[in-house]
């Protein structure tokens, strides 16, 4: 003869299943949202890649500038900024700081190049500088930093919202780091 379950046990098991369903669903949903925000930061062509490409343009400009300028502090400074932007191990806050200085450093190098006779005679390098400036501008135009910050802020606010946010937080869903 089969054993029957007391109704109280059935109710408890059902409640446990419902709670599991709620928690699992909440964590799954929050993780999916977080994944999307993370893709904006570290995904292919995300914010980290944009910073890295801007750093790469900085390095490329240094290559062009060093053909005409020897021992230039402006080029050294640009190279330092570019190195930080292309270094995966640097924290996001550090990259933000250096990215904010990149455009000024590029302008300083360009101004320095303007005083170089060999640069003024090199149509090729003038085109390269224009090309690199254009690429830096195009990469900035996407305004990836603002979009990421907006997305991260929205996610963090959602994570602080009552019940579902608290459950997700308790079950290990972490807030997103802001680009600041």
């Amino acid at each position: 003869m089969k054993k029957s379950l007391p109704i109280s046990v059935c109710i408890l098991i059902s409640l446990a299943l419902v709670v599991f369903g709620l928690c699992f669903g909440t964590v799954r949903g929050y993780n999916a949202d977080r994944e999307q925000v993370t893709a904006l930061l570290g995904g292919d062509n995300g914010l980290m890649d944009v910073l890295s490409f801007r750093g790469a343009d900085g390095h490329n400009l240094c290559v062009v500038a060093r053909r005409h300028l020897t021992a230039s502090p402006e080029v050294d400074e640009l190279s330092r900024i570019a190195t930080i932007l292309t270094d995966d191990t640097q924290p996001l806050s550090e990259k933000k700081l250096e990215n904010d200085c990149l455009d000024a450093a590029v302008l300083a190098v360009k101004a320095e190049l303007g005083g170089s006779e060999s640069y003024l005679q090199s149509q090729r390098d003038q085109k390269y500088v224009a090309m690199l400036e254009g690429d830096l501008k195009n990469l900035s135009a996407a305004d990836k930093g603002s979009l990421y910050n907006q997305a991260a802020q929205q996610f963090n606010e959602k994570l602080n919202a009552p019940v579902s946010g608290w459950i997700a937080g308790l079950l290990g869903v972490k807030p997103c780091e802001l680009y600041q």
Binding site: Q36, A39, L40
Partner: peptide
């Protein structure tokens, strides 16, 4: 590359 950056942003906008 720039197009890829734009697409990455569009993917997020589409998701939201």
């Amino acid at each position: 590359t720039v197009q890829g950056v734009v697409d990455n942003s569009a993917d997020y906008t589409h998701y939201t």
